[in-house]
């Protein structure tokens, strides 16, 4: 059993984002990058499967992602068996990422491919779907738990309103993980540092057709600040009255 976990470095949202002068991308020069939080969930789910069923977990990142080595070392410190960076993808859009990962997976097949269901810059969660399509494999997204059952996996897919379904998926398959069965584990810095000393990240290179992206960013827009916090002054009764008024006026409560 081999599980590939696709990790992506995304800007730390606590940073102030600025656009480049031509307005087509974030100014990445001074940004701090962290691992996409949903990818962290995917990694945790993979490690849980490794703990319970035994599996080789491969952490996969794109060579051009800033600080991706840090994310990969951290993944190995947590229990991943090895780490790979893929070079050759052009652009940062999801489709070309999917094409690059698919190209690598064709030569390095995995029984399960896990990725986060979405990312701050992929809110519609295209990556797992595009990956499934490119590889011609079954794909399930918004997955909240995975159990292995021979040549299949039983995955729980979450729907709106708290409903969920258990699906039986034939392996190999691509899963978009919403949340792991437990909170992502901690990677102690000492371990990460040891891993940095002892582990080599494999470097792979793939050729991806530039046209794979299919889209081109024409312009980005910074969010407009429209909301303001309202501080409510007055006696407790006045404050309560104002809160009730707000809740009613915004249709947050009935009656």
């Amino acid at each position: 059993m081999r599980i590939a976990v696709i990790l992506k470095a995304v800007p730390d949202l606590v940073e102030e984002m600025e656009l480049t002068s031509d307005g087509t991308d974030l100014d990445r020069e001074y940004l701090k990058f962290v691992t996409n939080e949903w990818d962290e969930q995917a990694l945790e789910e993979a490690l849980l499967l490794k703990d319970s069923d035994g599996a080789e977990v491969v952490a996969v990142g794109m060579a051009d992602d800033p600080d991706i080595e840090q994310a990969l070392y951290s993944a190995v410190a947590k229990g991943a068996d090895r780490a790979v960076t893929i070079a050759g993808a052009t652009g940062v859009d999801t489709r070309s990422r999917a094409a690059a990962v698919a190209a690598w997976l064709k030569d390095n097949p995995a029984d399960l491919v896990l990725s986060g269901v979405q990312a701050p810059d992929d809110l519609d969660g295209q990556l797992p779907a595009a990956l499934g399509a490119a590889l011609g494999l079954p794909h399930v997204s918004v997955v909240v738990s995975v159990a292995l059952d021979g040549a299949a996996a039983i995955v729980r897919q979450e729907f709106s309103g708290g409903r969920a379904a258990d699906l039986n998926v034939t392996l190999p398959a691509v899963l978009g993980i919403q949340v792991a069965r437990q909170a992502p584990r901690y990677a102690p810095v000492t371990r990460v540092r040891q891993v940095m000393q002892s582990t080599t990240i494999d470097e792979a290179s793939v050729a991806v057709d530039e046209a794979a992206a299919g889209i081109r960013v024409r312009r980005m827009y910074p969010p407009e600040k429209t909301t303001h916090a309202e501080m409510i002054d007055g006696s407790p009764a006045e404050v309560a009255a104002r809160i009730v008024e707000l809740l009613r006026s915004r249709s947050l409560v009935k009656g």
Binding site: D12, V14, E15, Y186
Partner: peptide
Amino acid sequence: VDAGTMDPTLQQALQNLASQGNSFGKSARM
């Protein structure tokens, strides 16, 4: 800590400290 046995809030603080150098999780540049 090595076994990861800790409060989730502590884990978050440590992760913030590792990435931004402060426990608040605010940008180091701020």
